[in-house]
Design a protein around this nucleic acid. Structure first.
Length: 429
RNA sequence: GGAGGGAUGGCAGAGCGGACGAAUGCGACGGUCUUGAAAACCGUUGGGCCUCACGGUCCCGCGGGUUCGAAUCCCGCUCCCUCCGCCA
């Protein structure tokens, strides 16, 4: 959610920033119109209340002094004022709701550092690591779904029998490999990030805080009976961990990580990336998240998350690249996002395995997470940063394809071997 | 699922129709004293909205009602706790 005061004081600058993400300024003008009306009405209401309060005080004094009879006229005036006040208050409440609803649907302002552009095509590749287009042998040009069938560690038929299309099932060493990768990234980041195992079914408020509602309700699974939502990412519970809290600046940045399943309806993507594990309604992810005091600290956190994700990919022996998302391709809540794409030689695709974003104070304002500045003064809204330490299925696919050997077996990367009971090679079952 | 209890400031906890944004204690901050510290003493110490400001207004879990006036009375809801039952 944007800062309303900023919209009021510099509407043109805000509109210009939103234009970079392709949003027109009508939403801003709408908010301002509702806001102006609300303020006018609220002012009138407050004046009436002030009158009622003053009268009550006087009446109270009269009662104490035994001048009850003098109070009648004042009581009548107060009653009338109270009725007008109530009517105005109803109007103000309605305007409040309208204002908030409009505000919640306006996206975040892109950082000035985010490149210009309207679509994916305008994203900027910042750098590419470990990639040699000609360095892959024919044995690595086998897509992971074929490898999965070959070695028996993927069972898409069983998955769809149980849950339908776009669910995956890992078996045997395939499942264990996935678990090893989860463990690896949790262990890697435990030095600075507190491990959290949050609930994965959350309330509506919690989904609103991160910006997943109200705008993207179609993307999420909703359990109507209990009015709970299945989280699309651990970012959701981790952000709301600090909801309505005020932290001392000295404890920031606070860093959390969580391993959870993530649930996405993927409405509208039926038929896209249907092979293998590239797109699934349910997948595992380890998420890193930080609460920061202000932009500078937040950007340092964002760089830290990026560096940590990168180091895991390179230790897994994968080629990857860092993509700076252009303003038009940014997620609704993000100010700046770096995607990490791992190269999967078998399907010959750059797979988005992590998305490291700085949300400025957009999410924290919705979640009402603040910090008290060390120098004194009123609480300020914190900044949030998060990124996948790794989105596992896609990384898994890249690992399996990259490390397929000429004999069809998979060489287990050294860093994962301790988590696989020392296993060095995965062969057929 | 059944029965009961509770929700007040950073925390603990009083208040149960008017002078209450709220006693008191703890904590935190500032000062006096001290070579320094502790102790003691004095003082300060929540947040939102409107306003250049003065000031106004709102917030005692949330929403409604009664009243000139509600933290306090009434109704509904949510959450938490305890006990019983059932259960991974």
């Amino acid at each position: 959610m944007l800062d309303l005061r900023r919209i009021r004081s510099e509407p043109d600058a805000v509109a210009a920033a939103l234009a970079r993400r392709g949003d027109d300024r009508s939403s801003i003008d709408e908010v301002l119109r509702v806001d102006a009306e609300r303020r006018a009405k609220a002012g009138q209401r407050d004046d009436l209340r002030a009158r009622v309060n003053a009268i009550s005080k006087e009446v109270g004094a009269m009662f104490r002094d035994g001048r009850k009879d003098e109070a009648a006229a004042l009581q009548a005036e107060s009653k009338a004022a109270g009725e007008r006040e109530k009517a105005l208050d109803t109007e103000v409440a309605a305007l409040d709701e309208q204002r908030r609803d409009r505000l919640l649907r306006i996206g975040n302002l892109p950082s000035a550092d985010a490149p210009d552009g309207g679509s994916e095509a305008d994203n900027v590749v910042l750098r590419t690591e470990g990639f040699d287009a000609d360095g892959y042998g024919p044995h690595q040009r086998v897509p992971h779904w074929d490898i999965g069938a070959e070695l028996g560690f993927l069972d898409p038929e069983a998955a769809s029998r149980i849950s339908g299309a776009m669910f995956s099932m890992y078996r045997g060493h395939g499942a264990r490999l996935l678990r090893a990768m989860v463990q690896l990234s949790l262990d890697r980041n435990g030095d600075a990030y507190e491990e959290i195992r949050p609930p994965t079914l959350v309330r509506t408020d919690t989904m609103i805080s991160t910006g997943h509602l109200p705008k993207f309700a179609d993307e999420a699974y909703h359990m109507e009976r209990d009015d709970l939502w299945a989280i699309p990412t651990a970012e959701v519970p981790l952000t709301s961990l600090g909801r309505d809290q005020v932290f001392d600046e000295a404890v920031l940045p606070l860093r959390f990580m969580a391993y959870t399943s993530c649930y996405r309806r993927e409405a509208g993507s039926a038929g896209r990336d249907t092979r293998g594990v590239l797109r699934s309604h349910e997948f595992d992810k380890v998420e890193l998240l930080a609460y920061a005091a202000g932009a500078e600290q937040a950007i340092a956190c964002q760089e830290d998350v990026l560096a940590r994700s990168e180091s895991i990919l390179s230790d897994l022996g994968l080629a990857y690249r860092i993509v700076d998302l252009c303003a038009g391709d940014l997620g609704n809540s993000a100010a700046r996002t770096w995607d990490i794409e791992a190269y999967a030689p078998g399907c010959d695709m750059w797979l988005e395995v992590s998305s490291v974003s700085w949300f400025s104070d957009y999410q924290a304002r919705r979640a009402n997470i603040r910090y008290r500045p060390s120098g004194g003064g009123s609480p300020e809204v914190i900044h949030t940063v998060n990124g996948s330490a790794m989105g596992w299925p896609r990384t898994w696919a890249a690992v399996v394809e990259t490390h397929r050997q000429p004999d069809g077996t998979i060489a287990v990367p050294k860093v994962l071997q301790p988590y696989m009971g020392g296993l060095e090679v995965i062969g057929p079952r």
